[in-house]
Amino acid sequence: MEPDTGPCCASPSGTGLLRAATGSRAAPGGLSASLPGHRLLRAAVLLLLTRLCCSGSVPDIAVHFGTKTRYEDVVRPGLNLSSAAAGCSPVHLTAVIRHGTRFPTVKNIRRIERLSRLVQSQAPRGHGAPSWLREIQEQWQQWYTEDMDGRLVEKGRADLRNLAMRLFSSFPGLLSEAGLRGGGITVKTSSKHRCVSSAEAFQEGLHQSWSLPSLSVLDPEYVHEVDDSLMRSFERCRGYVEGVETNATATEEVDRFKHGPELRQVRARFSTFLSFVVADLVEAAFFICSYELAIKSLYSPWCRLFTKEDAKVPTDPKAVVVKAKVGFFQHLDKKKKK
């Protein structure tokens, strides 16, 4: 079957969908029994980035890490989502959840490997080199391997387990064991391995909330559904694939940015010691800094390459790409509403 060429709805890549509701399949004596005496509350959960609270172990450029930001840096301690509407009884919860902390993709691992080789073979050494460069050359090890390829790290599983427990503490009636086993809770994910692993980890967190034995990787009690037609619907939209994804002219702004004054200024400052640095390698250095903080909680020496102003630049090309992609679907939505 050919992809639909009409309006499509985009689901953000790297997300999962959770729905929980009271009803005939929920636990007996649940919230549905007390609804007549209460106003109804329909709750949607969004994960919002808040301002980072930086400490001595967190680089000051971490505020520009975007989607590489550590989850613990954006959690609002003590937030009880169900307390926002006092006197209401929650009857439905929909949560769009991003996957947990992951390794770099193979594309970025290859760029990191290339940058590492060049720094070791072509950058100056000895007392004439700055301290951050000597630290990279003498102490930092290139530990990323291609088989990691965007897979969820153990810390990423913990991210999702903790999220499940926080949601359960706010909505215990909706996220009950009986609800999961009786079909009152549905968990949908894309086929991306990091998303499937995140869906599993989320359910592990619910089991911990219910004080049940932990699930194993092969445990048949995982109840999530892989649904790429929903979670990666953009891949089946011909208008998007042909008009944006495979259309070189759709992201011309990215190429202009890579050769524009902002990146030229960053490369000019780097060129004193790293004359071989091009736009992609500037971004690779920035990724090393962000991934090592997210995965290992390390203040990487690579972070010291960037000033606060520099750090605003490497993530911008991706923002331009995202704007082009999201703008396509916003355009379709407007056409559909006319």
Rank of each mutant, 00 (worst) to 15 (best):
V91I: 06
I97N: 00
R98Y: 06
H99E: 06
H99M: 15
G100I: 10
R102Q: 03
F103I: 08
T105K: 04
N108T: 09
R111T: 08
I112P: 03
I112N: 00
R114F: 07
L115N: 04
R117S: 05
R117K: 09
R117P: 00
S121D: 09
A123S: 00
A123V: 06
A123C: 10
G126M: 04
H127D: 11
G128S: 09
A129S: 07
W132L: 14
L133Q: 01
R134Y: 02
E135V: 11
I136M: 11
Q137S: 13
Q139P: 12
Q141R: 08
W143L: 14
W143N: 14
T145W: 12
E146F: 05
D147L: 13
D147Q: 10
G150S: 08
R151T: 11
L152P: 02
L152N: 04
L152K: 02
K155A: 13
G156M: 05
R157Q: 15
A158R: 11
D159L: 09
D159A: 10
N162P: 10
N162A: 12
M165V: 08
F168M: 01
S169R: 10
S170C: 09
F171A: 04
P172M: 12
G173I: 05
G173C: 02
G173N: 01
L174F: 02
S176K: 03
E177G: 09
A178I: 07
G179Y: 02
L180Q: 06
L180R: 04
R181Q: 14
G182D: 06
G183D: 05
G184D: 00
G184V: 06
G184S: 02
V187P: 01
V187R: 01
T189I: 07
S190G: 04
S190V: 10
S191D: 07
H193K: 13
R194W: 02
C195K: 01
V196S: 07
V196Y: 01
S197F: 12
S198Y: 03
A199M: 02
A201R: 00
F202L: 09
G205L: 08
S209M: 06
W210R: 05
W210I: 11
S211N: 15
S211H: 09
S214C: 15
S214N: 11
